[in-house]
């Protein structure tokens, strides 16, 4: 028996999920490649948009050309890690009654999807690295390389917070079918494809918005998904800002965790495995 199985016997099944998740991704290769291609289109749009705005070598919103294009390329990598998810399937499993298959197994449904998500994220990260190099070669943008250890550690910490936060948001949105199976896609559309897309900073750095709006947004979980990690990498947030962001992000993890457990418990009580 391998050493890690010996020390983490209860975690063995979750580790096994990684290889299953990777095999599933490669089983549907066209699906996987399409999702990567779609991601590239997003990056093209944001890159050309900001490249056009900064074509005159002028500074806007406190950004110069190098920093804004680093922000855009940062999105490619950070997006692969934070916003890539398969947990959107939770809603469908509950609506179809497939959740029953998991309830009878000695497995925690929350951790099951979290581990599957982590496997998928690393696969996408791997491919996004090559896309990053290819785009870098084609577009040849000026790029800012961060060398400060505090910023690099802060960036990594903010990435972990972003990954956990986004997973919880998606998972909670996926619990809606316990009460309204037909509304699951609608909730995901609003929360993930509209609100998260705009308020996470995937299209534009949020600090181009007025100070008052930015202050309000900083109390929501969304800026901690993409905007904060990339700003920390760019060195535009100091040690106090990093700690403050980590604190608010961590607070949101606690709040969402509490909320998720309550919703899950209430949902399981009304779950009737309709469709099975």
């Amino acid at each position: 028996m391998r050493l890690w199985v010996k020390f983490f016997p209860r975690m063995h099944k979750y580790f096994k999920l990684y290889s299953v998740a990777l095999r599933q991704e490669f089983a549907y290769r066209a699906n996987f490649l399409t999702s990567r291609l779609r991601n590239l289109f997003q990056i093209f749009l944001v890159f050309y948009l900001w490249s056009s705005v900064f074509s005159q070598e002028q500074d806007f919103f406190g950004y110069d050309r190098a920093r804004i294009l680093t922000y855009v390329f940062g999105i490619l990598i950070v997006r692969s890690l934070v916003l890539t998810t398969r947990a959107t399937e939770v809603a469908g499993e509950i609506a179809r009654g497939d959740l029953t298959n998991y309830l009878v197994k000695p497995i925690n449904y929350f951790y099951y999807w979290f581990n599957r998500d982590i496997a998928v994220k690393f696969l996408h990260l791997f491919f996004s690295f090559f896309e990053f190099l290819a785009l870098f070669y084609i577009l040849r943008p000026p790029f800012f390389i961060q060398t400060e250890p505090v910023a690099i550690i802060g960036f990594l910490l903010s990435l972990i917070i972003g990954i956990v936060l986004f997973y919880m948001i998606v998972f909670i949105a996926g619990l809606v079918p316990f009460w309204a199976p037909e509304a699951s896609w609608g909730v995901q559309f609003v929360l993930i494809f509209v609100v998260t897309e705009f308020l996470s900073g995937a299209l534009f750095p949020l600090d181009i918005l007025p100070r008052q709006i930015m202050d309000i947004l900083s109390f929501t979980p969304f800026p901690y998904l993409l905007f904060y990690p990339i700003k920390i990498y760019l060195g535009q947030i100091g040690l106090f800002g990093i700690l403050k962001g980590a604190f608010v992000g961590f607070l949101w993890i606690l709040i969402l965790n509490f909320f998720m457990k309550k919703v899950w418990a209430a949902g399981i009580r009304v779950y009737r495995a309709e469709g099975r």
Partner: peptide, 11 residues
């Protein structure tokens, strides 16, 4: 499914 319609419109 009026809830769905409302959600999409709001979105």
């Amino acid at each position: 499914q009026k809830k769905v319609l409302a959600l999409f419109l709001v979105g």
